[in-house]
Design a protein around this nucleic acid. Structure first.
Length: 879
DNA sequence: TCATCCACGC
DNA sequence: GACGTACGTGGATGAT
């Protein structure tokens, strides 16, 4: 088999990758986009071309021999952005990990190295492929040498052979330099001949083949001006030819044989990918696709399966984990536990630890430090055996989330691989996925996996802590998220009592009304169809009934509420459909959905708060989602009547922050006008209307207030002019004007918005009051939409995220104070800016005061925080 | 099983 | 001008 050599123009490809990809950085804040792009290209080439030899050539230094002929060579070039230059060392590291030779030569450009080596290879009869973003290299094209030039981005390449070159550019490889001699090259500052562009140059070369021949027959050239230019710039043309000519006899110290490529070291590469945060590329490292092969090649570990627990197992700090295959740790079966400490690695069967008093003593002893993954989960799981847990001093899940919330996989194997630890398989590989998920037959296999995971917790603690310390986020973990996890764990385990019969009753009523509505709709439509299917509803409305179609979706007509609302009054069917949709939602999601989630044992709902998901730091709630129980529409709000205290004579108590985000904005932006409004406890939407419309309070109409409210809403949620136009039903232009007027009224807010975007561009991330981070690589995107989105995110995340920080602080403090006061009242739920508690009737007054006091003083801002507290027999009545 | 559409909350 | 636009969860449908 003949040799195949790949020659890569390193600088050119790095530049291409850098500008083609958003300014990604890894979790250490190091920019990696060029390296990432380069890597994807390398992986693709290695896979597709299967080369025997590879060389990456780099430019060296600022000046080359070309500057001796023409000192303006490459003059006027923008200097390499620092975000890119800092990636070159990484690039070399990457190539080393790939075990690919790279080379640079003082005074010469990458082109010359490539030209020289390719010439040697050609003489030896090798097949050569050159890869670059620069068309200059096309002069090397020959029978044996292909040149691939990136077209757009880095993955889109055009491969040139002598034939395709002819076809595409109508010239031969030799003529590439003549072409450039005539045309010049703006980016290299090569002059060429004025007035001669691509078209003219090609025409001339077709007729005279070479530059020399052209000048020999100069008098035959038609066109007075053209002839004059050619005559006057003959020197320029020949110098340009000189400059454009690649030196194929550079004094390189390597030869083709040195470029031997013998495959990469998968382990090294995986480690580097881990450091760089290229988790998405891990799977493309060959060897990885055969996961089973890898599993058998994982180095064996030493561990002990414990039959009975004795006190002396617990010395020093321990990593501890309980494995459960399904998501819902409130009800699903536990598989086993594992403990790793200075003594060794241990697997502990469930039955062994749940009955062990030694274990319980250890778990509940706050002086025995534990490292865990997902403290909240562990709290709930142990609680199922009536075991408490104290002394958790590290949580891998929360640490990973805080380091970079945008990672979408925060399980132990994923984190481990990201941080360069590869002695672990992914859960899917061990347990399978989907319907096939389960314990593998071989017991050792899954036991070992569990032990390995716990080992990772033990080993990663230091690394993660260093990372957090570097970001000044240790407090965020240890003073906020970790204590909160325990509070949340108790809330989840406590659950919320549900009056199922009330739900059933409401369900019956709804079913009746739905049936009637459905019939009425079919009557009006003149036929039966599936009313729940937008795909079937569309044609009925917009074809059969000939209503004007306002919006389309990918698959047909849009029948969303905002479309239907615009059709209201045009046909009686519309309001029936709207009502049907609303009631159907209530029935399926809130009645049936909630009933499904009620635990039989205690008639309670135990939601799970996801503490490591949202990009802003808010919590989310699943199975069921208790953060979106209806409230705006009365019919829906009644659902809340089914949420009741767990004991007779107790009350539900709700405490919500009033305008917390706008208060946070007033604080962060230091806007005196906003601050004053809050200090005087003004109605903020009315105040905004006064400021934006320049009217006095009494002249604020309800419409003005509505619009001001929408603008405030937009500020809080970071919506665009488009978003505002949608919510107000006005044009985008008008919306833009509104926003502009808002910013005119609150100049400090405008400054804040400007500054935060600039800071995000500089740092690559934004932070909240408690130093939570959100990375915004898209902020440097050259795509307007992508960039705009990132900019709005930069403005909005500190606001929303800080509000999330504040209520979390309040929850920790409130939990502490409730326990300290030895009252029975307890937290049940958090809904972003609101806390729900259940309280014995006799404690209501005291707790109302306490909750308000704690929430209002969770943090000291330049504006007061205001909390409204209310209570009642059900959640509905606590309004 | 997955994508799409729709709708609820903050 | 840029064509997709706050964050989430969940149900129903329909194609795979």
């Amino acid at each position: 088999m003949s040799n195949k050599l790949i020659l890569i123009d390193g600088n050119s490809i790095a530049y291409r990758a850098f500008f083609a990809l958003p300014l990604l950085n890894n979790d250490k804040g190091v920019y990696t986009n060029a390296v990432y792009g380069f890597t994807t290209m390398l992986l693709r080439i290695l896979e597709e071309e299967k080369p025997s030899h590879v060389l990456v050539a780099f430019d060296a230094g600022k000046t080359t021999f070309r500057h001796e002929t023409y000192k303006e060579y490459k003059g006027g070039r923008q200097k390499t952005p620092p975000e890119l230059s800092e990636q070159f060392p990484l690039l070399r590291e990457l190539l080393d990990a790939f075990q690919i030779k790279h080379y640079q030569l003082e005074n010469f450009e990458a082109d010359d190295i490539i030209g020289t080596i390719s010439k040697q290879a050609k003489q030896d009869g090798w097949n050569v492929k050159v890869i670059s973003g620069d068309k200059d290299l096309l002069q090397l094209v020959s029978e044996k040498i292909d040149v691939s030039v990136t077209k757009k981005g880095i993955s889109d390449v055009m491969n040139y052979t002598p034939d395709t070159l002819k076809e595409d550019m109508e010239i031969s490889p030799d003529q590439v330099i003549d072409l450039k001699a005539l045309m010049g090259d703006k980016s290299d500052n090569i002059p060429g001949v004025p007035g001669v562009g691509q078209k003219t140059a090609v025409k001339l070369l077709k007729e005279y083949q070479t530059l020399e021949n052209l000048y020999d027959h100069l008098d035959e050239v038609s066109g007075k001006k053209l002839k004059e230019n050619l005559t006057n710039h003959k020197d320029d043309a020949f110098m340009s030819k000189d400059l454009a000519t690649i030196n194929q006899s550079s004094p390189i110290e390597i030869s083709v044989k040195d470029t031997l490529y013998d495959g990469y070291d998968a382990t090294n590469l995986r480690n580097l990918f881990g450091e760089l945060g290229f988790s998405s590329l891990m799977g493309r490292i060959s060897g990885d696709e055969e996961a089973d092969v890898e599993s058998t090649t994982l180095e064996a570990i030493d561990f002990e399966k414990i039959e009975s627990i004795s006190e002396d197992l617990f010395t020093g700090v321990a990593a501890f984990d309980i494995e459960i295959l399904e998501e819902n740790y409130h009800r699903e079966q536990m598989i086993g536990a594992s403990l790793v400490n200075e003594k060794g690695k241990f697997f502990i069967p469930i039955d062994v630890f749940k009955e062990s008093t030694a274990f319980k003593r250890w778990a509940e002893d706050s002086s025995k430090k534990k490292y865990v993954f997902d403290a909240k989960k562990i709290t709930v799981l142990l609680n199922r055996f009536e075991i408490g847990i104290e002394g958790i001093s590290f949580d891998l899940l929360l640490a990973s989330y805080l380091i970079n919330p945008s990672e979408n996989n925060h399980d132990i194997p994923a984190i481990s691989h990201r941080f360069g630890k590869t002695a672990i398989q992914f859960d899917d590989e061990v347990y399978g996925k989907g319907a096939k998920k389960g314990l593998p037959d071989e017991e050792d296999k899954w036991i070992e996996h569990i032990v390995r995971k716990t080992t990772m917790i033990y080993e990663l603690k230091k690394q993660m802590e260093d990372e957090l310390e570097g970001n000044k986020q240790l407090d965020l973990l240890y003073e906020l998220e970790l204590p909160l996890a325990l509070v949340l764990g108790e809330m989840e385990a406590r659950g919320v009592k549900v009056d199922s019969s009330r739900l059933v009753e409401m369900g019956k009523e709804l079913t009746e009304r739905l049936k009637v509505l459905e019939e009425e709709v079919y009557e009006l439509a003149g036929e039966k169809f599936n009313l729940n299917s937008p795909k079937q509803l569309g044609p009925i409305l917009f074809e059969k009934l000939e209503l004007p179609a306002i919006k389309k979706t990918k698959t047909g007509y849009s029948t969303s509420a905002d479309v239907l609302e615009q059709l209201q009054g045009k046909h009686p069917i519309i309001e029936k459909i709207l009502l049907y949709r609303q009631l159907k939602k209530l029935d399926s999601t809130y009645i049936a959905g909630l009933l499904r989630e009620v635990f039989k044992q205690d008639e309670k709902i135990h939601t799970r708060f996801n503490q490591a998901l949202t990009q802003t730091g808010r919590l989310s709630s699943i199975d069921p989602n208790l953060q979106n129980i209806p409230i705006r529409i009365e019919e829906g709000r009644k659902i809340r009547q089914a949420f009741i205290p767990s004991k007779a004579g107790w009350k539900m108590l709700a405490a919500d922050y009033s305008q917390i985000e706008l208060r946070v904005l007033a604080h962060i932006a230091e806007d005196e006008k906003l601050q004053a409004a809050f200090q005087q406890d003004k109605d903020i939407h009315t105040q905004t209307a006064m400021d934006v419309f320049h009217v006095s309070e009494k002249d604020v109409t309800s419409n003005m207030r509505r619009q001001a409210k929408a603008v405030n809403f937009g500020i809080v949620y970071g919506i665009s002019d488009y978003g505002l136009s949608q919510s107000l039903g006005i044009t985008r232009k008008e919306a833009k004007k509104f926003i502009e007027r808002y910013l005119e009224s609150y100049p400090s807010v405008r400054d804040y918005m400007k500054d935060i975007v600039a800071k995000a561009k500089q740092d690559g991330f934004v932070t909240t009051i408690m130093n939570r981070r959100r990375y915004l690589p898209d902020i440097t995107s050259r795509n307007f939409n992508v960039r705009s989105f990132a900019e709005r995110t930069a403005m909005n995340t500190p606001i929303q995220g800080s509000a999330a920080d504040i209520i979390k602080l309040a929850m920790i403090e409130l939990d502490r104070r409730l326990k300290e006061a030895e009252v029975k009242a307890r937290l049940l739920l958090q809904v972003h800016d609101e806390l729900i508690l259940e309280v014995p009737e006799e404690e209501v007054d005291k707790i109302s005061d306490l909750v308000a006091e704690v929430m209002e003083n969770a943090i000291e801002l330049s504006v007061p925080l205001k909390v409204d507290v209310s209570h009642g027999d059900t959640w509905y009545d606590a309004k």
